[in-house]
Design a protein around this nucleic acid. Structure first.
Length: 490
RNA sequence: CGGGGUGUAGCGUAGCCCGGUAUCGCGCCACAUUUGGGAUGUGGAGGUCGUAGGUUCGAAUCCUGCCACCCCGACCA
């Protein structure tokens, strides 16, 4: 197939890495576990940010920014929270370097911080410590804030985009007067995420709730969206947490209600990260490289001229110069690649690798016939299309491609949700068919852990609006009222 | 933290066992011919062989220490 890309069926993991590197999305930096997001990869992230940011603002949120550093003592204030993050924190202990006299730069031991600073793995603590000063009355509520930031989690093992030591994300942190309002916010935001992932990224998701043991550290309830990758493994694409009054209590954030009573504030937090890039790459791409949904492709249409002499090129360029404004007028991003330094075949391969949804090739033959050659990335089909009305044709085609890759992913997902009625069947499905497995579970953490230890499968979620169905736990035989979704996950 | 691997030109590599100043491919630069699926020819540039020390007349090669990164697992978004 393509030069230098490992086939998906040979080695899925290597295939993924190859696409990230060869499509010029990111590269490993010289710092362990940290990556450099390259311009092409970053431009995709910027498109994601733009859409999400708009949705957050439409739902009443504002952006703000809180410090990168968090005093260590803040972490110990919420017991479950510190437990969840303690083992993966980067800690700043000194604030100065010095020359040791032998030409080496060393830490100046005399410049030791009185209290260590944690590089934020998430910002609940610093934000709730700040909110204490902002909230006195029910009139100050709700507070609906989002922050775009980088965070650091010192994971043992990293993977480009899917899990890096430092990653980019957004984290929403809201404060409410009532439990009901906070829960409504939590649900609203998981729906915003699902809408974005499905309708922009073209990745179908299952909305659900996490079990107690899979919850965010410090949350009373964690809602999530779970996507299924082409290798049959699940990927958590976004989470929205109902934090109850845990952080308000830990940071002493109270307000006076309409009734004049002093009460603790109710909280939510929600986030998606550059991990979504990983989901995007893995969901649609093939052995020829990246496949991007038109709605997030930095370049939606690329035009490659094919010519033998400058006369040919001039004619083509004249046509293209008229076409580009028409496309742009319809909101379509277009690149005219008239580099003379590369031949057409090279360009075709390059834009396939980079996942550009539509490619036009225009040569002398086309100019004579008033046509263009159009190739779509998702199906790799080529066709000859009239120049007349081309921009309309392309606008429609982009939507068709968006729908097509979504439906393809949806079909894969639908055929990879399988019911298992015994533990043996469950294990066989995990090893052979993979994907989500819907099974009865007795609701205990013990059984959940046993399944995880024995099969590496976790409960991805209890789907929202799950249909109730009496059954018995596939492991213990105890009664169960609904099936939950298991899978091996990233 | 365990297991495995790698470190030699921008990238990928050979050479290492058996010591004598680094091979090949891609890429890069120039020129020409090319241009409807990853062009061809000719010429050219590019190297602290991860790092520190040791052995030796001489080290990419042998010895010792150190460092870094990648992959697999445990942890996790």
């Amino acid at each position: 197939m393509s030069k230098g890309i490992t086939s998906k069926s040979d080695d899925y993991s290597q295939w993924y890495n190859d696409i990230v590197i060869k499509a010029d999305l990111a590269e490993h930096s010289s710092v362990k576990g940290c990556m450099v997001i390259k311009p092409y990869g970053y431009s995709i992230w910027e498109k994601m940010q733009a859409v999400l940011d708009h949705k957050f603002k439409e739902t009443g949120h504002s952006n703000a920014y809180f410090p990168l550093f968090i005093p260590k003592s803040y972490f110990s204030k919420e017991a479950a929270h510190v437990e969840g993050f303690a083992t993966e924190c980067a800690v700043v202990t000194h604030y100065r370097l010095k020359n040791d006299g032998n030409g080496n730069i060393v830490v100046d031991e005399t410049a030791k911080l009185e209290e260590e600073l944690i590089v934020r793995p998430t910002s609940e603590t610093i934000i709730w410590n700040t909110y204490r000063g902002w909230i006195e009355s029910y009139r100050d509520l709700p507070i609906l804030i989002n922050q775009w930031a980088n965070v650091v989690r010192w994971e043992m093992r990293t993977r480009l985009f899917l899990r890096t030591t430092e990653f980019l994300w957004q984290e929403g942190h809201t404060a409410h007067a009532t439990s009901a309002e906070a829960i409504e916010e939590t649900e609203k935001m998981i729906n915003v995420y699902a809408d974005f992932v499905e309708n922009w990224m073209a990745v179908p998701v299952v909305k659900g709730k996490k079990t107690a043991s899979e919850r965010f550290a410090g949350a009373l309830d964690t809602y999530c969206i779970e996507a299924l990758m082409q290798d049959g493994k699940a990927l958590q694409a976004g989470t929205s947490h109902f934090l109850g009054q845990n952080f308000a209590k830990a940071f002493d954030v109270k307000f006076t209600s309409k009734e004049g009573k002093l009460e603790h504030v109710w909280a939510t937090s929600w986030g998606v990260s550059t991990r979504l890039m990983g989901a995007l790459i893995m969901s649609h791409s093939d052995d020829a490289g990246l496949v991007l949904p038109p709605k997030l492709a930095p370049i939606q249409v690329v035009i490659v001229p094919i010519y033998r002499n400058s006369d040919d090129l001039d004619k083509i360029t004249t046509f293209v110069d008229e076409l580009i404004p028409k496309l742009k007028g319809l909101g379509i991003s277009v690149k005219y690649d008239d580099r003379d330094s590369q031949r057409p075949g090279f360009k075709f391969a390059e834009y396939e690798l980079k996942g550009v949804p539509v490619r036009l090739a225009i040569g002398a033959r086309d100019m004579e016939n008033q046509t263009v050659e159009l190739a779509r990335r998702d199906t790799k089909e080529k066709s000859t299309v009239p120049q007349q009305g081309l921009e309309i044709y392309i606008a429609n085609l982009l939507q068709e491609i968006q729908d097509n890759i979504y439906n393809k992913a949806l079909q894969f997902r639908e055929t990879h949700i399988t019911e298992a009625n015994s533990y043996d069947e469950f294990k066989t499905l995990l090893d052979t068919k993979t994907g989500f497995i819907a099974a009865h579970w007795d609701g205990t953490a013990e059984t959940e852990k046993r399944i995880k230890d024995e099969t590496k499968a976790t409960i991805r979620c209890i789907p929202l609006n799950n249909k109730l169905e009496d059954g018995v736990c596939m492991v213990t035989g105890k009664p169960s009222t609904q099936r939950v979704l298991f899978a091996r996950a990233y």
